[in-house]
Amino acid sequence: MTAQVMIRVADVSKNFALHAQGGTVIPVLQGAALTVRAGECVALTGSSGSGKSTLLRLLQGNYAPAGGVIEVAGLDLATATPRQVSALRRGTLGYVSQFLRVVPRVPALDVVADPLLTLGMEEGEARDRAGALLAQLNLPERLWGLSPTTFSGGEQQRVNIARGFVHPYPVLLLDEPTASLDPVNRAVVLQLIRDAKARGAALVGIFHDAPARAEIADREVDVTVFSPQAVPA
């Protein structure tokens, strides 16, 4: 039995129109296609500027496509309402970002527990789970009560990772999850990814860390092939 298709991208294009610069249109992607099944991990590859991040952001609903279909867990992000996208992100579509965007004074533990609270989990249980994950990621407990805005890059990254793994999202997007981690924590993250695959999550990631990529990705998709030919302005 084939696993269920969790992500289906077909003929997706993306342009950026820069109104401040006389309406210059910069095409970024054209004819992008991608299928990811449950339990699969797909790595996006390609040189810098080839559109990996753009595709990942399209999958997250962060960017609006110019054309095509982006189905995530059955919802077409190209046509979905904001509310549907929000709901998808709440319970189904997880995202480990490279950047930490949080309310400045909120403690790390609550930042991690936040997705669970949004899903209606009781506060104590949500914090317990968040704490367990932070412990697994070796974030010293004395930091849990502090705002991650004051953390180092590696510490912030682990908070982001914990946020992405605290709920068993069926679809998970990973943007450089191992970038600034030491070997020990890198191993922890790779194990988390393996566990997610094992429970049937569909994962799409950008990994500059080639050995990591080789270790966990089932397939690689080179986004360079979706680069549009230069369009006359």
Partner: peptide
């Protein structure tokens, strides 16, 4: 109008782009 992060990160209208930038 739309999803907050989409409007802010991928603004379509000239004015929104100006505002965000």
């Amino acid at each position: 109008q739309g999803l907050t992060d989409r409007v802010l990160d991928d603004p379509q209208h000239a004015y929104t782009q100006l505002l965000v930038n």
